[in-house]
Computed example of a mutant assay.
Amino acid sequence: MKETLKELLPMKWYFLYVAALLAWLAYANLVGDRILSFGNQEQWSSGGSSSHRSGIMHHK
């Protein structure tokens, strides 16, 4: 086990970076922030009226 940890020691900054990134993504998900949002798009929802009326369910 100690040999494995010694082999991973040079990568400690990589693991720290990944841990910080995951923590930031988890926090943003928790508070509802939008990450990498380009433009003013409305949030998608499955309910409500839609302008897209094609599909099997709408054919008679």
Rank of each mutant, 00 (worst) to 15 (best):
K2V: 14
L16Y: 04
R53L: 05
G39K: 03
L25Y: 09
S50C: 08
E3V: 04
D33N: 11
S46V: 12
Y14K: 06
E7A: 09
F38G: 06
K6R: 09
W13E: 06
L9C: 14
T4G: 01
A20F: 14
A19V: 05
E3F: 03
A23R: 03
A26D: 13
S50M: 09
R53G: 00
G39T: 00
A28H: 05
S45Q: 06
E42W: 00
R53F: 10
V18L: 07
R53N: 11
A28N: 10
S46W: 08
T4I: 02
S46I: 12
A23C: 14
N29L: 10
G48P: 01
I35K: 04
L22Q: 13
S50K: 07
H52I: 09
S54T: 04
L9H: 04
R34A: 06
L21A: 14
W44H: 07
L25Q: 15
S49E: 14
L5E: 15
W13K: 12
L30K: 13
L5M: 12
I56Q: 14
L16H: 05
K12L: 10
I56E: 12
S49F: 02
R34Y: 11
E7Y: 07
Q43K: 11
W24G: 13
K2F: 09
S49I: 08
S51D: 13
A28V: 04
A28F: 06
E42L: 03
Q41H: 07
K6H: 07
S54W: 08
I35H: 03
S37Y: 05
L21W: 08
N40W: 08
Y14E: 14
L22Y: 12
G47E: 11
R34K: 12
Y27Q: 07
L30T: 09
A28G: 07
E7K: 02
A23E: 04
T4F: 04
L36P: 00
R34M: 09
H52Q: 09
L25C: 14
A19H: 03
N40D: 15
L25S: 15
A20E: 15
S45V: 07
L9G: 05
R34I: 05
K12F: 15
F15I: 00
P10Y: 02
L22A: 10
G55D: 09
S46N: 05
K2T: 15
F38C: 10
E7G: 04
T4Y: 10
I56A: 14
Y14I: 08
Y27S: 11
Q41W: 01
P10Q: 10
A19C: 12
G55P: 06
L25M: 15
L36S: 13
M11K: 09
A26C: 11
Y17Q: 03
H52C: 12
